[in-house]
Write a protein that binds this DNA or RNA. Structure first.
Length: 109
DNA sequence: AATTTGACCGAGG
DNA sequence: TCCTCGGCCAAAT
């Protein structure tokens, strides 16, 4: 598991996101130690199409569904989140802070 | 080997 | 308070 690249590290964290919860690119980047490379997280997610990971649970720090356009169907991301109990309005998470999940919490599970 | 890009974040005017 | 601009790291070409 040492061959894990930055990409795979991101995937590992995203897969740990609980149902009904969301996280941000910055938090993931920060958890990996490279807080400044939040862009890398998003870039990694772009390659996540080939993997089974809940990419719809990852949003930007504003709680905005910035990556919805990368999904096969733009509305799919919002549908999935709403299906998990996340309230979304105008492509933005309403109860963002309420359903926000921090990678650090995985240690507390 | 060098350059470009990317689902971002934070600071400055 | 709203809008603009730069930086940052890693992977792909």
């Amino acid at each position: 598991m040492k061959d894990e690249t930055f990409y795979e590290k991101v995937y590992q964290i995203v897969k740990k996101i609980p149902v009904g919860k969301v996280t941000t690119y910055g938090l993931i980047a920060e958890y990996l130690g490279t807080k400044k490379s939040a862009r890398l997280v998003g870039y990694a997610m772009n390659n996540s199409h080939s993997l089974q990971i809940p990419a719809h649970r990852v949003v930007n720090r504003n709680g905005l569904l910035t990556g919805k356009h990368q999904f096969p169907i733009p509305t799919l991301m919002q549908e999935l989140l709403e299906n998990e109990g996340v309230i979304i309005k105008n492509d933005q998470i309403v109860n963002f802070t309420d359903c926000l999940w921090i990678p650090k919490d995985q240690n507390n599970l």
